[in-house]
Amino acid sequence: MIRRRLRPLRPDPRPGGLLTLVLLGAWMVLLVAAPGALADVFTPESDSGSPNAEGIDTLYKIVFALGIVVFLGVEIALAYTLIKYRMKRRSPAPAQIRGNTPLEIGWTAAAAGLLVIIATVMFVMLGDIKNPVSSAPGGLPLGSAVTQFASTDQPAPPSGKSLEIEVNGQQYLWRYDYPGEERLFSYHDLVVPFDTTVTLKITSQDVVHSWWIPDLGGKMDAMPGHENETWFRIPSPADGKERSFLGECAELCGEGHADHYTRVRALPPAQYEAWAARQAEAIREAQEQLAESRRAREAAEPTSTEIGGGEGS
């Protein structure tokens, strides 16, 4: 037995979805009207001018534009339907439509088609983002050919030459090892020359970290036992002055995760070489000091075996 103790359903004066549309519409207006200065509110960072970062930026903008079309299409259709077909005083009983096969095949094909377009754009642009370019004229002259590892498949630049840096993530700092006889290394700051293709071999010695400087393109995870790869090339600015780009570890790596920063400093090649020489000297001095203090300590303090043996002799 069905009994309805309720008042019959009455039309509602407030159309739903309207506020949604207003809110999201306001956001969209902001997007369209956004001046160039606000570009990074809507698109990824790419201020360095590194070709991979610019490639990602462009690819994002294309996919984002298609996404906005779909977004507006769905939201407008939803809001229009809700407002237009809300129950009114004299709404007729709606037609009992159960489907429309050609229409349904149509929109399935349209959705698939849009995704085929996105996939195609992605694969067309992939090479420019994934594959390192050669150094630009004026970059650091590089002598030796690049060594290649096969763990991932980033190819060598067409010239076969790049400044190859070994990146090591640790709780909570980054160590950079530079190529060459001097076995140069640095912590926190990676110093690189302008216009020079820099390839990175990224690993970790403890937990998983992720190396990421937003302005220099995508992040790559630093995983113990694995070697990951990425690259960048920072063009020389008009004024030729040093530029630096900050980044933060992107994978939760423990208590110090939020303070796991790193920085890339880009210099004109001549200044880079001067820095390299200074750094090599500083490392040599530090190592000598360390060796000396160790010798001094060993001379001053008897070792435990000496104590043990001392009583017997």
Partner: peptide, 11 residues
């Protein structure tokens, strides 16, 4: 779109 994910992953 995985090259875009390289930027946006874990953000």
């Amino acid at each position: 779109v995985f090259p875009v994910d390289w930027q946006l992953h874990d953000t």
